[in-house]
Design a protein around this nucleic acid. Structure first.
Length: 291
DNA sequence: AATCGGTTTTA
DNA sequence: AAAACCGAT
């Protein structure tokens, strides 16, 4: 019997970026990190991804994989089953990921964490996706807010400051699974009918493009944001939503860039744009506390 | 310390 | 109208 290779796994989910990625950075403190992406159409149920999201996901993964010298292992199916196979194949030390907050993902991930711990495998999860996690923000009576303004002003803004973004880690310890022949194309994320070619030029998924969009917004869109954001055709619309959704840029990176540049903009526009990040937080919050 | 009633706020 | 807040018990 050949000895199995010692590895840890970093599981990419809604955090398709290398910079400010706490889980990825932490995983790289151990040796030999295998990056993995799993298309899960099994546990998602009602929330199964639609065609436009799949197109975005494909392009985003393509971009991310290129940055990692094509070392990501792609799988499709139930993550727990896939991890069981990887446990059989490698001497797996631990699995690292960043938390998601949708009820179906929490249910799945809790289950996976339990399985891993029960089988002597380390499981580490981090916050990479939200400025404040849903269980951190509660009223004095320890129940969750239902109204945005008190949630944001009193709950969030009076809480500890959001985590400071971290740099892109050193990628030397990233390895690939030479035995895995399942590449991105096999996930079949792109529809055979190429209806998506319409927006191929309008939208560019990927970490670098997310940051470009944000820079352009800072140059042209943030001045007059409070008023202009209500007109979708104006440049005051940031267009960052899908990039944030797939985690190509973190809210923390946006938040602290705004702090840094606070002298360049009016208090009103800055506050209003930040509060839109607050609304994003609030929707995750409500979905978490009142599913 | 949890509950009650009255007042203010709500994007 | 419903939620949050405040002061009193």
């Amino acid at each position: 019997m050949t000895t199995k290779k010692d590895i840890s796994i970093f599981w990419f989910r809604q955090d398709l970026r290398l910079s400010d990625n706490p889980g990825l950075t932490k995983s790289l403190e151990s040796k030999n990190v295998l990056p993995v992406y799993i298309l899960d159409d099994i546990n998602s149920g009602e929330n199964k991804m639609g065609g436009a999201s799949r197109w975005w996901l494909h392009r985003s993964l393509e971009n991310l994989n290129k940055q990692l010298d094509n070392k990501i292992s792609f799988y499709s199916g139930d993550p727990l089953e896939i991890f069981k196979n990887l446990i059989a194949k490698f001497n797996l030390k631990g699995i690292y990921w960043n938390r998601c907050y949708e009820p179906w993902r929490i249910k799945r991930d809790t289950n996976i964490k339990k399985y891993l711990i029960d089988h002597g495998i380390e499981a580490y999860s981090y916050n990479s996706n939200l400025l404040w996690e849903p269980n951190q923000i509660l009223k004095v009576d320890q129940t969750p807010y239902k109204v945005f303004t008190p949630y944001y002003k009193k709950g969030c803004l009076n809480h500890d400051s959001p985590r400071i973004p971290i740099a892109k880690p050193n990628l030397e310890k990233i390895i690939e699974d030479e035995g895995n022949r399942n590449d991105l194309e096999n996930l079949n994320l792109l529809d055979k009918k190429k209806w998506y070619s319409e927006f191929e030029n309008l939208w560019q998924p990927g970490e670098n493009h997310a940051h470009n969009k944000f820079s352009i917004f800072l140059e042209n869109g943030l001045n007059g944001y409070k008023y202009g954001r209500n007109f979708p055709s104006k440049e005051n619309v940031s267009q960052l939503s899908p990039h944030l959704h797939f985690g190509e840029i973190s809210p923390n990176q946006i938040w602290y860039k705004l702090e840094e540049k606070s002298d360049d903009y009016s208090e009103k526009d800055l506050y209003h744009f930040k509060s839109e990040l607050g609304w994003r937080e609030f929707s995750y919050y409500l979905n978490f506390h009142f599913p």
